[in-house]
Nucleic acid binder design. Structure first.
Lengths: 322, 322
DNA sequence: ACAGTGGTTGACAACGTTGTCCGGCACTGC
DNA sequence: GCAGTGCCGGACAACGTTGTCAACCACTGT
């Protein structure tokens, strides 16, 4: 900027005024400055600006995996809202590792992001206290923060969706409904198990439940075990998109009564097409981002906890008889 | 930091030394400083640090859409490499809009990213000249920069892959092979058309080619038109993942001889399973990021232009007879 | 002719950090 | 006791920007 100033024969401050579109610069002077800017290929140093002004126009997003379709859709929505507020997005994957999550949040805060959107992996978020107190708002998405921290949190109706799926299978005559969920330490997995169990009532049988990371082997093993029971399951409820796909792969085309939590591309083209409880990741991201930007524009009301609805999408696999 | 210094009863610079792990501080003093840091919840202001040191430990990634599985996989790989270099990733979607692309690059550069990875949407990248001259390296991925700019570029073997797919269908007896490609202004679409055409030789018939954005309507219309020809196509080659999925949806389960460019999840579970020319988006992202970090660590050799191989994955749909 | 006015412009400090350099202190060897 | 030698700690400037405030200029109205 100094160079631009001397090239244009004006003071530093005048260049600053032109760059920021501040009034009080004669058009002729402004043109001279702009010409010098173009000639030198100058671009404002945002770090210095941040240092002076305190706002980075950047928000941080910590999700489990930027390549997972669910989180990618969520991230895209956050990006759109951020763009509408002239903000950029720092995004990173925690890989379901609490230490990494914390490290990322720390790195984001050191870069002075204006706000944070977090899909938490860990169960303790007390490390966020100083940042929150310092005025960096955070919004949790998909999963709540650990105990002792009351911040904005956007969740889906996990238990309700699971109950919906389970009742749907019950309504189609199934009495032995298996549940494949992710590890119970994951909030959504636990909530969905809860909804499933509540809907089943006394039909609940823990032998029909498996809560493990969604690998091909773990799913195969669980299904083999269940199918070998005296009274094997006649239907399957899978607890997230990854598990649904993995289960379909293990079933290898054998049609089975199945409802999955989370929609996924091509669910409609499989045969039978797959009935799912659909969340709307884009909406979730949008709601969270809008909440964050409301906080950034000064709203300091009590923490909000919106719960987004889910929808049962009938496609065939969930309507098969026992 | 000033507060920490006075809280610990030391000078500013001593705190700086502790924070940066510089030698020359007595352990007892360092402990006192660290205690003060914890007590005050202090975290270093990265903007100020950047201002002083010149490096942000942040790289920028401009892709077409962070939610597209192909680019999401690419982005994830870039993130991994960046993380290995203790860098964060600013990522954004250009939505195939040259103006937006340029705006994003500008915003990234203003924030003084250490380097850029760009999947270009536009055809003119002369606006990058000042940044490159200023020492911000850029790597282009998936598509080359506009003319007049010779920078590192990582491409896939688009023409080769298209030829491979086309010859595969030819080898299975097809003589009328249709091609659905994206808009010809998109580099990869043009290259794939080129490979398809070269492989067909005199069998090429422009009535069997459609190059349009992959909407349901445009694909339906193109297929209807082609199937109404005197000598309709007996096989279909789709020019990217989105088109493949859209075409499958239009075909609605009617089996058709089909090879798609780009692999996609569940391609193996459809019936017939879908034969594809698979790129490796993760590898592409990794190669690009590694190239970028080599530049960042001082390698200023001539621009490199690696071309990544593609692989034909036989699954059934490409082996159907006419 | 002169104070008053409004529109431009510029000098300077400050943001929080790090690099440079210098001062003080304890300890060593004479 | 005294210079020499490390080691530790601190003062200060600088990075590039913006907010504050004051100075300047050309008019205007009296």
């Amino acid at each position: 900027m100094k160079d631009v100033a001397s090239a244009a024969g004006v003071a530093l401050k005048t260049v600053s005024r032109v760059v920021n579109g501040e009034p009080g610069v004669r058009p002729a002077t402004a043109d001279r400055v702009r010409a010098a800017i173009d000639r030198l290929g100058y671009s404002r140093n945002e770090s210095a600006r941040v240092l002076r002004r305190g706002r980075t126009s950047t928000v941080g997003l910590v999700i489990e995996d930027v390549a997972d379709p669910f989180y990618a859709g969520l991230g895209r929505a956050v990006e759109s809202v951020a763009a509408a507020h002239d903000c950029l997005l720092l995004s990173a994957s925690s890989s379901e590792d609490p230490a990494r999550e914390r490290e990322l949040v720390r790195a984001f805060c050191a870069r002075r992001v204006d706000g944070l959107i977090v899909v938490p992996a860990g169960a303790d978020h007390s490390y966020l206290r100083p940042e929150l107190d310092a005025g960096t708002p955070a919004v949790f998405v998909d999963r709540p923060p650990g105990p002792g921290l009351d911040v904005d949190t956007v969740l889906a109706d996990n238990a309700g969706g699971a109950a919906l799926a389970t009742r749907h299978l019950l309504a189609h005559g199934h009495r032995r409904i298996a549940f494949l969920g992710d590890q119970p330490t994951i909030f959504t997995a636990a909530r969905r198990l809860h909804g499933y169990r509540a809907a089943l009532g006394r039909l609940y049988d823990e032998r029909l439940v498996s809560m493990r990371a969604p690998t091909l082997d773990s799913v195969r093993e669980a299904l083999d075990r269940m199918l070998a029971l005296d009274r094997p399951p006649t239907a399957l409820f899978t607890g997230n998109g990854r598990l649904t796909v993995t289960a379909l792969r293990v079933l290898a085309g054998r049609p089975a009564a199945l409802v999955g939590f989370d929609d996924f591309e091509l669910a409609d083209l499989l045969r039978p097409a797959v009935t799912v409880v659909a969340q709307d990741p884009a909406r979730m991201g949008r709601v969270a981002a809008e909440l964050l930007f409301r906080r950034l524009s000064g709203d300091d009301g009590p923490a909000e906890h919106p719960v987004l609805p889910v929808a049962l999408v009938l496609r065939g696999s969930g309507e098969l008889p026992p």
